[in-house]
Amino acid sequence: MEAVFLQLLNGLDKGGAYALIALGLTLIFGTLGVVNFAHGALFMLGAFCAVSLQKVLTMSAKVRDESVTFFEAYKEVPYLEMWFGETGTAIIDYTVPLALIITIPIMLLVGYVMERGLIQRFYNRTHAEQILVTFGLAIVLQELIKAYFGANPIPTPAPDIVSGSAHIGSWLGLSDDIVYPWWRLIYFFFSFTIIGACFAFLQLTTFGMIVRAGMADRETVGLIGIDIDKKFTIVFALAAVVTGLAGVMYTPVLPPDYHIGMDFLVLSFVVVVVGGMGSLPGAVTAGFLLGILQSFASMTEVKEIIPGIDQIIIYLVAVVILLVRPRGLMGRAGVMED
């Protein structure tokens, strides 16, 4: 029971990441009908917003180390610490949450430029060509990041206050052994908030209504006199923001390197396919479902029965779903079923 509960928890943060990426991906697919292979690169860009902020905040000067007396030693002291003392240290400590703020405008801009500059030209071309051009873009973005930040993973720790583990077990009256890192708990709630905000935005605002109408029938909405292209550009930018934020928040869980996007891309496509192309609730459900499934599959008990299952479970599920129910768990009938 406790082991099961623990695996459920473990699945949640990964599921949260899958759900957020898949949400962005399916938003783009559902509205624009574009298969975006550069979506993983957006996740990576988000993560590297946090890394860049960390770089900026910890810019430091060499200062004589007074504690070493018998030879001249120098240590690196960040400017923020020199100027603001304690406050500066605290700011550096809170790099990742602060990065959320700068990521939003950056990703909006990235999404806008990407849609206007490239994706827009590919609305009327085949899916194969969309895949290929966005794949090329993903390579370019990835290599630019690699050229600037190097090939090694860059650790970006979470604030000290949440670096420990939460004793979830004792809260719920279960065994005290069940502990769960604070940051993962935060990630889970964060992803829930973002997902909730997205749904609220699409369901409750006029803008969301227009977008949904455009998803259903783009031409008619255009004929009514609404500039649907402009709205869709904004949707693309928003999807980029959602994915970028997922990337920022994931940095303390997994130190980002330049191919983190590619690693997540394949998985998030699988999630979208399982959930149903163009279905937002489907993408979210499938994200959490697959995250949890994966963490169950990596239990030693399960691995003893079927060795290697943890490596392939997600793909296996995708294959089965595609063959049995090609529209995915919650896909609308007739949408991209072929």
Partner: peptide
């Protein structure tokens, strides 16, 4: 399956082999 689903299926199989 055809179209993009075919691409994703082959991708899934290849990733399974790789993993």
């Amino acid at each position: 399956r055809s179209g993009i689903y075919f691409s994703i299926l082959t991708l899934a199989f290849a990733q399974m082999c790789y993993n």
